Simulated scan of single mutants.
Amino acid sequence: MGRHRQPPRPVREQLGGSALSVPAPGPDARSVSTPVADRGTLDPGILVGGRRSKVTSTLLAYVALTKPRIIELLLITTIPAMFAAERGIPGFGLVVATLVGGTLAAGSANALNCVVDADIDAVMRRTRTRPLARHAVPTRNALVFGIVLGILSAAFLAWTTTWQAAVLAVVAILFYVFVYSMWLKRRTSQNIVWGGLAGCMPVIIGWSAITGGIGWPAWVFFGVIFFWTPPHTWALAMRYREDYAAAGVPMLPVVATERVVVRQIVVYSWAMVACSLLLVPASSWIYAAVAAPAGLLFLATAHILHFRVLKGVPAQPMTLFHLSNLYLTVISVAWAVDAAIGLNVVGWPW
Rank of each mutant, 00 (worst) to 15 (best):
L305S: 10
L74Q: 11
N110G: 11
N325Q: 08
S284V: 06
A336Q: 01
N325I: 11
M318A: 09
G93L: 08
L197M: 14
W183T: 04
P349W: 12
V48K: 06
T129L: 11
N344Y: 02
V137N: 03
L278E: 02
I46C: 12
F227R: 09
T233R: 01
R239D: 10
N110S: 15
H135S: 13
G212M: 00
G248R: 08
L277D: 01
V144T: 09
L65F: 04
L152W: 13
V224Q: 09
A288W: 08
V249T: 11
G312P: 07
V11Q: 09
S21W: 04
F298C: 09
P7L: 03
M238C: 13
G212H: 01
M1S: 03
G342M: 09
V262C: 15
T58V: 09
G206S: 03
A246R: 10
G101Q: 04
R3S: 07
F145M: 05
L20A: 15
P349L: 13
S269P: 05
A340S: 08
A340Y: 07
T103F: 13
W285Q: 04
A340R: 02
A136L: 14
F298R: 02
T301I: 07
A169S: 15
I79T: 13
M82H: 06
L99D: 11
Q6V: 09
W350T: 15
A291F: 02
P7G: 07
L47S: 14
A61D: 14
W270L: 14
P230V: 04
Y62G: 04
G26H: 11
Y268R: 10
K311N: 11
L197E: 10
R52E: 15
H306G: 05
R263K: 15
G213H: 14
A64I: 03
G212F: 00
W207N: 08
G107W: 10
G196I: 09
K67P: 10
F178P: 00
G196D: 12
P8C: 00
L168D: 06
L152G: 03
S181V: 04
M238Y: 06
T127R: 02
L112A: 10
M238A: 07
V177H: 04
A294N: 04
H135C: 03
A282H: 06
P7M: 00
R187D: 08
F226I: 05
T139E: 12
F83A: 13
V100C: 13
T129F: 00
A271H: 01
G196P: 10
M201W: 10
